[in-house]
Design a protein around this nucleic acid. Structure first.
Lengths: 339, 339
DNA sequence: CTGAAAGCGCTTACAG
DNA sequence: CTGAAAGCGCTTACAG
């Protein structure tokens, strides 16, 4: 029913071997026969069969992305960078996604099926030792996106530095009672952002009290959601002594926090400053100050790392770590740097 | 190197045929041999080879989603509904995406490769007659998401009704100088929303002037972006006679509009009301009134339609059209319904 | 219930 | 430059 290599071989008067060669850009085919085969293929509307091809070649032209929470806006932007870079490459992208982190093992299992893909990109999932083992013995090229492990290539933002930048900024702007909306304590990126923030603060001898560290109760997207920011901020506002600057570990939490602030009628940034993390496109439109991650570069870079790893299995493990940058908008006070 | 059906056949002492049968849940295998084969497979860490399987079966367990603009938040939420529904189904999802609509033909070409997938979901792309032809003669199951064509199954929201709902609402709240932020005129959903809005208005003899229809100059995401809303609103604010209610054809445009409004210091909703479309999760946090589309249901429903079509090729074409709903928040005036 | 064999649609040494 | 043949790892009538 569908057109195979046999049909076009017959029509063009050559063997299937040479037909195959022209579709593989093998130079050992005369120009004349190439043309004739190509035109026969064109007429018949031939398309190579993907599965047959990968079976014979013992390799596929698809790669997998394992993304725990697909609708997370941060991932959406990273994915865009990735897709743009994949562009005209021959590779196709298989996306494995689950509602929450619990299912990552299951996704991995599916993604690692033999012959399924040439390599996998694992998006910010905390990895159990078991996961690490499985990945290693699968023998597949792996790159970690937005997370880190010394045995795999990875690409991410320096979250510790990002947290410290947020701290530096609010210190400089005169804050003395900082607080943080910290997402899920199990989230590695959130933890690092908090750690960097806290460390810098303590170096400057500014106290970050326990009551001023609000973890998310709402676990959707690992606490990186609007509701958790909203709830956390409400709780902060109920304190006897309100904070004067709050660092949200993601923009999306900051957005929720902003709503709580608005409802309570507090003046931002005069009474309370707010700074987020990520720099989603919406941040600009709500005037949110934030620590920017280069999301498109992360996506594009992940693809490049994976390609490199597919090319050569035994290159040393590589880590790309981007520096975040500070974006000042309306939720923080600008200040004069005193030298 | 990797474990095949031959290895486990040898180890268990059966032929590859019976090994294959147990992995296909063929009931014509005795319980005893099933157990022994399964344990041999377990020990060896056997996994079926995806390509070999689809080649032999003449069908794959992957489906394709063609999404012109992957990082669009609306699509992200639809995709989540889809992935949740795919859940434990054996299917995997291939995602084809391009920066803009121009490349849809190219994506289609890749997605339609023989043996690549069992069916395709095409997300809101305007279809040329050529595309329609190609889809039809590919013989593949196709479902249209967020768009419509009478020859293919589809699932979408009734955009005309949605536009009319927005009109009804602002009419009831007393607006007399409506305006619309209309995205790209080539976008079918945007066009329908505008059409529904305009029609209802004219039925009520309320004038929608040409100057008050602002198409996007910024074409990213077909005009469904913050910048286009921002620019459009600025233009509206420069008019001698400002509008008193504006309908944005997407929430993301409304977000940009809100920024322009805030910068100009206009009182929302007292001076100008604003209503969006979609009900993205952020809408709730910026207090945006909007016309809601059931995004998760659209995603889940798309999967169901595709499965149904894969099962039986010659069922009549089915269209699922959801009714949108009105979500009142802070950017519109509430009013008493006078009977 | 089980096996031998053909076939799915390609690729790729090996010869010539 | 071109072809015959083996092989990639499965599935599935056909026999028994």
């Amino acid at each position: 029913m569908s057109i195979t290599i046999y049909d076009i071989a017959e029509k063009a008067g050559f063997s299937i071997a040479t037909v195959s060669r022209v579709f593989n850009d093998n130079p050992r085919v005369s120009e004349a026969t190439r043309t004739s085969i190509l035109s026969a293929a064109e007429e018949l509307g031939y398309q190579p069969h993907a599965s047959a091809r990968s079976l014979a070649r013992r390799q596929t032209e698809t790669i997998s992305a394992i993304i725990p929470m697909i609708s997370n806006y941060f991932f959406a932007e990273v994915l865009k960078g990735l897709q743009d870079r994949m562009g005209k490459s021959p590779y196709d992208l298989l996306v494995f996604s689950a509602p929450d982190l619990e299912d990552v093992e299951g996704l991995l299992f599916k993604a690692l099926h033999r012959g399924r893909s040439a390599g996998v990109m694992l998006f910010s999932a905390p990895m159990s030792e078991e996961t690490v083992q499985r990945l290693q013995k699968s023998g597949q090229p792996v790159v970690l996106v937005d997370s880190f492990h010394n045995r795999f290539d990875s690409i991410s933002t320096n979250n510790l530095v990002g947290g410290a930048m947020a701290a530096d900024f609010i210190i400089a702007s005169g804050a003395t009672r900082p607080a943080v909306l910290a997402a899920n304590p199990n989230s590695v990126p959130a933890r690092d952002r908090l750690a960097g923030f806290r460390k810098r603060l303590s170096e400057e001898r500014i106290e970050l009290t326990v009551e001023n560290i609000l973890y998310s109760k709402q676990q959707v997207f690992d606490g990186f959601n609007e509701q958790s920011g909203y709830d956390g901020m409400k709780e902060l506002l109920a304190h006897d002594q309100r904070p004067d600057a709050v660092f949200a570990t993601s923009d999306i939490q900051a957005l929720g926090a902003l709503k709580a602030l608005r409802e309570a009628g507090v003046d931002v940034p005069a009474e309370i400053q707010l700074i987020g993390f990520d720099d989603l496109s919406i941040a600009r439109y709500v005037g949110l100050s934030t620590i920017r991650q280069p999301m498109h570069e992360i996506g594009a870079g992940a693809f490049d790392l994976l390609m490199a790893r597919i090319e050569s299995r035994n290159t040393p493990v590589a880590h790309t770590i981007y520096a975040p940058s500070l974006i000042e908008r309306q939720t923080t006070r600008t200040f004069e740097l005193v030298l």
